[in-house]
Nucleic acid binder design. Structure first.
Ligand SMILES: [Mn+2]
Ligand SMILES: [Mn+2]
Ligand SMILES: [Zn+2]
Ligand SMILES: [Zn+2]
Lengths: 157, 157
DNA sequence: TTGCATCTGCAACTGGATTGCGGGTAACGG
DNA sequence: CCGTTACCCGCAATCCAGTTGCAGATGCAA
């Protein structure tokens, strides 16, 4: 079980995205553009990988948002169709921008490193809906690969 | 979020499989063939879908096995390579016979019904390892489709 | 049959996620 | 601008699948 590693030691996931744009997008869903929603959505937009609640909480620690508020914001984003949620093999949910919201976030596979615990978006590995048994209808397809990431393979350990 | 539904209302998942065979298979792993291990392994062998700890616990309620024992048996089965574990989108682990243990359990996709919460093994949907970024190595690939199963689609609801 | 490493039962614990509720505030109308 | 109010947030308690520690039981090889 990999230990938690703060975002600072990872790829840059700093909240920096067109502010007005983000607020407008939230209001377009018929909801209030609150500081918490804006901050989290901006973060997701610039994230290079799927973020857990803990990731968001640590990155936005200075802002002083309540833990529960961040849970609710993430839930709301999913419900509003702005983000999607995948259950990781370590029983934590990870969030990333919804496919429909940006072309580079089209349906793709995810990779979980068993060593460092990070989850990468494999943008190049596209996912297609398989043929299902009669009567079954699909809403979502998730492909998740586990193993060791490049960084962890390089490190002698 | 679908409510838990007891096994009795679902497909027949009664523990009935060659007893001696099962005991021998357990001992072949250098472990003791205890009642709990035998019962759980027999259950997995006849299950038509991936079982959660709760499924096993309810089905074997009469036997009086402790909750923790069943957790440990399931963990042991995975460690021994006799079963494999998939993390479901509702944050519960589900278990099924390992691919190497029976030809009909080759690497396949799983289907989760958002309505009734059941997880089906899509034996016909084979899974192959995708091409990964340089330096990445894979150990396991999981494909999980979500949507509505035939039964739930048929029911008017 | 006996020895003992392995396994089980029980109870306490963990950590991510959820819920209830009183107080706060974004957005709209005036 | 300011008042109103439905929506949102902070806080504390709670849930729940899964884990851990330890003392006692037991499968099985000798
Ligand atoms: Mn992604
Ligand atoms: Mn399966
Ligand atoms: Zn890694
Ligand atoms: Zn169903």
């Amino acid at each position: 079980m990999p230990v938690y590693r703060p975002l600072s030691s990872l790829a840059p996931v700093v909240p920096q995205a067109p502010l007005e744009d983000v607020s407008a997008r939230i209001r377009a869903q018929g909801a209030r553009a609150t500081p918490a929603r804006i901050a989290v959505l901006r973060m997701l937009q610039t994230a290079s990988r799927a973020l857990s609640h803990a990731d968001v909480e640590h990155a936005l620690a200075d802002s002083g948002f309540d833990r529960v508020t961040l849970y609710r914001v993430l839930d709301w984003l999913v419900e509003a169709g702005l983000a999607h949620r995948v259950a990781d093999s370590d029983r934590v949910f990870r969030f990333s921008l919804a496919a429909s919201r940006s072309p580079e976030h089209a349906r793709h596979a995810h990779f979980r490193c068993d060593d460092c615990g990070r989850v990468f978006c494999l943008e190049d590995v596209r996912v297609s809906t398989p043929v299902l048994p009669a009567g079954f209808t699909s809403k979502e397809v998730q492909v998740s690969v586990s193993g060791a990431c490049a960084e962890c393979n390089a490190r002698p350990s």
